[in-house]
Design a protein around this nucleic acid. Structure first.
Length: 744
DNA sequence: CGTGTCTCTTTTTTT
DNA sequence: AAGAGACACG
């Protein structure tokens, strides 16, 4: 496997030490082959994977590692385009539009074209456009099927949508890749430069690649052809995003002299887990031929739990973890709870909260997705790129400053007529004269304000600038003055955003506004997976790919959940769901728990649910059944019994709070309730954090949220983040500095 | 022009 | 069950 030159494909099954192979390969190139690190490019799909790879390589080769480029497809392309995009007529100050920007822009385009968005939803239209871009088809190449009216409309929209993007000097996610390819193909100079720069190219998770990404890699490596890709077709779970599993299976056709290696030994999981996972995945057609095996002990049998409803399912999961934490002093960081859709996390969260077990949601509703954060980001984008009318439109009347729908109509029609950026139109006296006096002032004040803010960008540091924008625009002050509870929470988030900017300023190599905006657009979460070490992790199956945990709970194994009902019509999609199930199962190192409910409440009404067909793949002698099966004996430990009694009640933190308190103040002492002989929290061993005056388990009082309990404390470069559970307001992350907490 | 209420959809997964 | 958008009122 020391084959370093020429194309190489490595099939790396789950748990086969894939990252290790990649990083050792890089180390080998540097140490044994004397390849300069800056000639190596490692491409991944997620920032998490890129970070991990960079860290692991650094462990092996030290400082040198910082000179190699490890990043995502999107960040790599963004970097190329900022540096050399002008060769293909792209302004280097372009803005990156994320998912919701894209949707808004499609909506705008639809209404400009007078297309009924009821009949042709923005989502569907955008999906068509995105697919086209993934196939490297521009608006003229895009070929709608004759009998498909949606696609015919999509073509019109696509053309207009691109014109708008260009007018705003913006690129969407798909454009980044597509134009990266264009750059390499159309600019001989750029092509030569990048081909010479990167003598060795490595691609992780190759099974998730789409055609545009494939073309990028092919163009980049066509000179030296030193390409090494790693992947596992059984873990291809991004087909819905344009990933084409055939690209990994056809690697040897694309690169006829390729050498292929298979890593089939699993170092991660117990024998029984591997066996069960294999029983599931073997039902898929058209897999590359391989079978995982392991030297590890068989271990415990995976447990299948039959729950009555999702409440009881959550209680079982939490009860199980709770018991382990108390009895075996287990580490909460050893546990992961995986589910198909984000919405399923809620009930589990509530139940964990009741049991006072620290947890962390990975992914999910992202910090940067909150409306108030998007507002502030829109200010920054509009200030950075004055052509970005989409962002400008978002904030022109936020906070309300008297520029309503009527005024916008006038402005918009001028934008259309003159084909000028909205901001320029706001500054044109001949336009604003058409407005009433109050509106004229409103627009002029806005224009001046933006001008004043922009002029300060140069002189201020990033943090100061963000601070200035947030106050100078009156955005934050208005939130603070409003007196409404949710506005106060928004204000907190805005302040946290300032902290994020400060953190970025001190940690990034290039603490400019440009690089901060790019960071925000391309990085998914603010506190991604920081504390996976010390708390129970909750995440979707998709987010779990690439991770491993000693103990894994996979919940909601029901028909229409996993496999998801949206995939039911298409056998290929069912196979993807099966792979998803496989990915989930193979995250487990020691113990695997699978559960399903007979009833589940969705959209407010309760439906009967059949167990997932994937459970049916598991032979009875490999697994252990628990829970309410018609024929099965009810298996419950006494501990579990008392746990369920406790959590059966409605969200009532008071008793838990007092128990937590007593457990903390007199460690090892009998808790308040004699017949449930366990303290509610046993976290001292694994999470000894205290921050300033606060410790986990403390009761605290917040000016707005009332009394709550400190659930966890996360040290952070910007100050400690205290996570507090409030009975009324839910879980809040607060910065120790700002929170204004008192001991209760 | 801004705000509050009512209806209606929404939930698959994400760089 | 909750959030977003439409609509009517002040």
């Amino acid at each position: 496997m020391q084959a370093t030159d020429g194309p190489v494909l490595i099939f790396a099954g789950a748990g086969s030490g894939k990252t290790r192979v990649l990083t050792y390969r890089v180390a080998y190139l540097i140490h044994e082959q004397d390849v300069a690190p800056e000639h190596i490019l490692a491409v991944t799909f997620t920032n998490k994977a890129a970070d991990e790879m960079r860290e692991r390589i650094e462990e092996l080769v030290g400082e040198d590692a910082t000179r190699l480029w490890a990043g995502t497809f999107h960040s790599f392309c963004a970097r190329m385009l900022r540096a050399d995009g002008q060769a293909i007529d792209i302004e280097p100050t372009f803005t990156i539009y994320d998912e919701s920007d894209q949707r808004t822009l499609v909506k705008e385009t639809l209404s400009a074209l007078n297309i009924d968005s009821e009949q042709y939803s923005p989502e569907n239209i955008h999906w068509e456009i995105s697919q086209a871009k993934n196939e490297l088809q521009g608006p003229s190449d895009y070929a709608p099927a004759r009998d498909n009216p949606l696609q015919r409309e999509a073509q019109r929209v696509y053309r207009a949508y691109q014109r708008r993007l260009r007018g705003n000097n913006a690129l969407d996610f798909d454009d980044l890749i597509m134009n990266g390819v264009r750059l390499l193909q159309e600019s001989a100079q750029a092509r030569e430069y990048y081909q010479n720069q990167y003598h060795y190219v490595l691609v992780d998770e190759y099974q998730d690649i789409n055609f545009a990404q494939f073309s990028l890699i092919r163009s980049l490596t066509e000179g030296h052809r030193n390409l090494c890709v790693v992947g596992d077709d059984d873990q291809s779970i991004y087909g819905w995003r344009g990933a084409n599993i055939r690209l990994i299976l056809a690697f040897e056709e694309h690169f006829p002299d390729a050498r292929t290696f298979k890593l089939e030994q699993n170092y991660r999981s117990t024998g029984n887990i591997i066996q069960c996972a294999h029983e599931v995945i073997k039902h898929n057609q058209g897999r590359a031929d391989k079978q995982m095996w392991t030297d590890n002990a068989p271990g415990n049998e995976p447990v299948v739990y039959h729950a009555v409803n999702e409440q009881e399912e959550a209680e079982w999961v939490v009860g199980r973890i709770h018991t382990d934490l108390l009895v075996d002093e287990a580490d909460p960081g050893d546990y992961a709870i995986l589910y198909r859709t984000n919405a399923m996390s809620r009930i589990i969260e509530e139940t964990l909260l009741q049991a006072a077990i620290a947890y962390e949601i990975v992914g999910g509703t992202r910090f940067y997705d909150r409306a108030e954060i998007k507002d502030v980001v829109a200010y920054l984008k509009a200030l950075y790129n004055p052509n970005d009318s989409l962002s400008l439109r978002r904030i022109i009347n936020r906070p309300t400053r008297g520029i309503g729908a009527r005024t916008m109509q006038v402005l918009d029609s001028t934008v259309q007529r003159l084909d000028k950026p909205l901001l320029d139109v706001c500054g044109m006296p001949e336009v604003t004269e058409q407005l009433r006096l109050a509106q004229q002032h409103a627009v002029a004040d806005f224009y001046d304000m933006m001008d004043a803010l922009r002029s300060r960008c140069e002189e201020l540091s990033l943090r100061q600038f963000v601070q200035e924008v947030v106050t100078g625009s009156d955005y934050l002050p208005r939130l603070q003055q409003s007196g409404r509870a949710d506005d106060a929470e928004r204000a907190d988030n805005v302040r946290e955003f300032i902290t994020a900017a400060a953190r970025f300023e001190s940690s990034a190599e290039d603490p400019s506004l440009e690089s901060f905006l790019e960071h925000i657009s391309l990085i998914s979460d603010i506190d991604q997976a920081e504390s996976l070490e010390s708390t129970v992790s909750l995440m979707t199956l998709h987010s779990a790919k690439g991770l491993e945990f000693p103990q894994v709970f996979l919940v909601g194994l029901e028909e229409e959940v996993l496999p998801h009902y949206r995939s039911m019509g298409d056998p290929a999609e069912i196979e993807e769901e099966r792979r998803l199930c496989y990915v989930g199962m193979t995250r487990a190192q020691q113990r695997l728990y699978l559960s399903h409910c007979s009833r589940r409440t969705i959209f407010g009404d309760t439906q009967h649910r059949e167990p997932s067909r994937f459970l049916g793949h598991l032979p009875d002698d490999l697994i252990q059944h628990e829970g309410t099966m018609p024929s099965a004996r009810r298996v419950k430990t006494p501990q579990l019994e008392s746990e369920m009694e406790m959590t059966g009640r409605r969200l009532d933190l008071t008793s838990i709070l007092s128990r937590a308190k007593s457990a903390r103040s007199q460690p090892g002492a009998e808790p308040s309730s004699p017949e449930s002989p366990e303290p509610a929290v046993k976290r001292e061993k694994t999470e000894p954090h205290t921050a300033g005056d606060y410790s986990v388990g403390d009761r605290v009082k917040h000016s707005r949220f009332g009394e709550g309990m400190v659930v966890s404390i996360k040290p952070d470069s910007a100050g400690d983040i205290i996570v507090v559970a409030f009975p009324d307001a839910g879980i809040k992350k607060l910065l120790a500095e700002y929170a204004g907490l008192e001991k209760a």
